[in-house]
Design a binder for these strands. Sequence first.
DNA 1: CAGTTATTATGAGTCATCCTCATATGCTCA
DNA 2: TGAGCATATGAGGATGACTCATAATAACTG
Lengths: 237, 237
Amino acid sequence: MSASSSQTKNTQRERLEAKEQSILKAATDVFTALGVDGTTMAEIARRAHIAEGTLYLYHKNKQDLLAVVVGNFWAELTKGALTAVDSSLPVIGQLKQLATYHLTALIQQFDMVGLTYRARLRHGEPEYQLPKIREYVRVFDQIIERGINRKELSEALPLWQCRDVFYGSLEYSARTLRLREIQFDLTVVEQLLVMFQPYKINEASAAKAGPSETSTNTRLARIEVQLASLLQEKAQR
Amino acid sequence: MSASSSQTKNTQRERLEAKEQSILKAATDVFTALGVDGTTMAEIARRAHIAEGTLYLYHKNKQDLLAVVVGNFWAELTKGALTAVDSSLPVIGQLKQLATYHLTALIQQFDMVGLTYRARLRHGEPEYQLPKIREYVRVFDQIIERGINRKELSEALPLWQCRDVFYGSLEYSARTLRLREIQFDLTVVEQLLVMFQPYKINEASAAKAGPSETSTNTRLARIEVQLASLLQEKAQR
DNA sequence: CAGTTATTATGAGTCATCCTCATATGCTCA
DNA sequence: TGAGCATATGAGGATGACTCATAATAACTG
């Protein structure tokens, strides 16, 4: 850590770092191309230009290497999601942005979904959640929290159920879209998010509240508000 | 197939059938207990009281055996689902029954979910859907179709999206419930199905007030979707 | 710079496991 | 009983994850 002799230390470190990256790249390529069972450590080593034994200096075993590859994927996804969501929007808009981003990413790199399932299985069985995935999910959690704070969403649905509906639906949809090679457009996300309507709150009628009629009123009121803001914006342009 | 000598043939056949069942049982036990990677063909053979080589007279390889085990599971589930759903009920009630049944089954035998993911991967990669699962999903499809025929559900959401939302949400929920060991009660299903509200057609208003109010609702829904799409467009700029 | 230690790299060898195949066993019918 | 066929066996080949004794390289020191 001394500043004087850190030059050599740095280059040494950097060389290791570069090798680590090279391994990660090779592993990612092979895993996604050939699947977990089709992947051999020998092939990864070959592509990373190192000996097979060297792999085991960087990663305990194949399973561990897979976990790193998958974790890396979700970490990247988290970064992208944070920039894709504009937290100044109404939460429903934010959810749409996140859903669109998530769906697009999953479809483009669907192999990673399969790899993720494999990475979760540690040998001691109790299927656990990768930390990097937890972090990714926090992006969603924060949107929901914001929505509740801003009184745009009701708390009727527990957070974990929100999550499961959101990500469960999207993953299944991604699989279908990928399988059938359906051209994916925004209406898919739109239609999905219609399902969150029952949990949207309109402040005006929240006070009055008749269960059946509320929904119609709230929807009308919300539309009025949103339309007004849109029109205003358009006028300014 | 001749009736005269079929006695001996039958016992012979039955012996093979019994052996087949014995293999299936052993394989199911080992796969669920130890996971795919933890399972060895030797162990399955041992538990089925046969030699390892004999396994390969009944199943081409480990992957094939897994597919049979998993297929068998979903076939059983289909039987159960058919008896769990009362088709004379309103469709929302039917969906609740199916959701409850599905969720309960998944939680109780969650290992099968993991095995199902593994069974889907054939070595030639293009992740395909097991026929037995298709059959299982038809139970759901038929409920939705009935709902649309009886004018209890709108056709706004394409069938495949309904499916993906339904099964995606439930699978994710099952994983959460299993992981956190949450006591599962009916409110979970209730709250989930609230999300299908936007797609419900209210019979009362449909019958009484006639087309006017129904069309108001559908028009409203359509407007919401269009509006949301406008907002989305704006957000992406 | 030479010598010494610490770090990193190697790949031949070990072991577990899937699957094949030559051989064996049992069953049926003449 | 014995020929012919269906079924069963487990030793052995092949593959691939992982180890470890050894080698190469870097870092440090007087």
